[in-house]
């Protein structure tokens, strides 16, 4: 295992009286595909938002690529190579698909080069043919792909994917999984939140399980599927 690129150390996040994250720690090695699962409201999206700097953690720290990034603003975190997609899709709805992705590429280059990068990223997610459409006119699965392309355009080292397979059919899901694998082969590290267990089990080397803001398991898909607490909290009997 190579040196961890992302180290989450004792992250706690409170929203008023609600303990959304409770002392969560885990590490991600460069080149891994990690799954993050747990029931609704477990804190998965909150964890992603905290890692990229949208939320300040109540306590704990995040180290990324050897440096402490706790409390940095999201754009600084993105510049270091860590970004995420949004679960409910947060595109720039009035802009074209191309412009959405182009804005991501502007992080590292000027407008002209960014346009080329954006087209390449759209091509990668299979959406080059709708580059000129307005984001508002897309279907939900298309929007999720544009989100992926937009984050890829920032040239991340680690990409956090929040339920990009929601609302996809089987074929589309296979396509996204193939895409994630090929991105990993190109050197990207991926952490994916998904509720589709088959997808997550076949995609990930390792899975982290959250429940009520606490990490309750961390291991290979096989270990996770056998873990009694995970089965009780989330998986049900199907995987036991």
């Amino acid at each position: 295992m190579s040196a961890p690129i992302l180290q989450v150390d004792g992250i706690t996040k409170r929203f008023g009286g609600l303990l959304a994250l409770d002392n969560v720690s885990f590490e991600v090695a460069a080149g891994d595909i990690i799954g993050l699962i747990g029931p609704n409201g477990a804190g998965k999206s909150t964890l992603f938002s905290t890692l990229v700097g949208l939320h300040k953690p109540t306590s704990g720290s995040v180290r990324f690529a050897g440096a402490d990034i706790t409390g940095l603003k999201p754009h600084k975190v993105a510049a270091r190579g860590l970004t995420k997609t949004f679960q409910n899709v947060a595109l720039f709805m009035e802009a074209t698909v191309l412009d959405n992705v182009l804005i991501g590429a502007l992080l590292r280059e000027g407008v002209a080069e960014a346009r080329t990068t954006a087209m390449a990223c759209l091509d990668r997610v299979g959406l080059a043919h709708i580059a000129g459409k307005t984001a508002n006119d897309l279907s939900f699965p298309e929007r999720a792909r544009v989100e992926v392309a937009r984050s890829l355009a920032t040239r991340p080292k680690v990409l956090l994917l929040d339920e990009v397979m929601a609302a996809l059919n089987h074929v589309e899901m296979e396509e996204i999984m193939a895409l994630i694998r090929s991105l990993r082969d190109d050197g990207l590290t991926v952490v994916a939140v998904e509720h589709h267990m088959h997808a997550i089990m076949s995609l990930c080397e390792r899975i982290v399980v959250l429940n009520f803001g606490r990490k309750i398991a961390d291991g290979t898909p096989q270990d996770i599927a056998k873990d009694p607490e995970v089965v009780r909290a989330y998986l049900g009997r199907e995987y036991a």
């Binding site: 949208l54 970004t83 947060a90 595109l91 720039f92 502007l106 407008v111 355009a153």
Partner: peptide, 18 residues
């Protein structure tokens, strides 16, 4: 382009580096 991003979704804009 960045102003448009800020106008439409400031959180998303930040997360992709604006």
């Amino acid at each position: 382009y960045r102003l448009r991003a800020v106008k439409e979704n400031p959180d998303a804009a930040e997360v992709i580096g604006v």
